[in-house]
Amino acid sequence: MNIKIKNLTHAYDVNVLDDLHLDLDGYHAIGIIGISGSGKSTLLRILAGIEKPNQGTVEINGQFADDKHYKQNIGFVFQSHTLFPHLTLLENITIVLEKTRGIDKQTAKKTAIENLTRLGLDDQKDKRPNKVSGGQAQRASIARALSVNPDILFLDEPTSSLDPILTDEVLSSVEKLKGLGKDFIFVTHVISFVKDFADYVLYMDQGVIAEQGTPDMLDNPKTDALKNFMNKVR
């Protein structure tokens, strides 16, 4: 994918994303890491067009993030699953496809089952979110985000509310999505996942991109901030 960030400035919590610039091309899985409050989730939301920056522009694959149609081409997975609790996992997907994409019932069901199966949930499809585990619900969220066939899938700390075993379960199913030909931009605390999955890493610190590069930078950090961070997460 192609990402261009220009003069991005945005106030969040008590901090500020301070005049970010970025120009990347040809990467398919960009991982954003950093401590809480470093601005990584805010950056992700701005990249996804969920939040509008105070200043500056974000352009991905030639489309501006504040463009009306931009959201049609992305998928977003939140920290906690955002499944609609009154619908089964299957209906959670079909309702989106039928109502917002105008897809007919049969095709919607087929697509939904396809994506649920991809995430290993075909046997859970008729259960409501409250009847499956947190990991399964999060995987269903991912399946739902994928079902609208987005170009880019955004993941905002998708496992932060899960225990280590469920985290592993969710992240390994995300890794299996590599072959789908989609692009990923994600925020996570799980460094091993970044190393396995990302082909480019942004390390955020106090509202700026403090260090960036391919994942091997995590083994030889240049800045003190990333050195400290890597020592702590280990």
């Binding site: 959201k71 049609q72 977003f76 955002t82 609609f84 917002t100």
Partner: peptide, 14 residues
Amino acid sequence: ISDEQYMAMDLFGF
């Protein structure tokens, strides 16, 4: 009904 549900609805374009 959580804020995230509303965000998800917005994202999907309901």
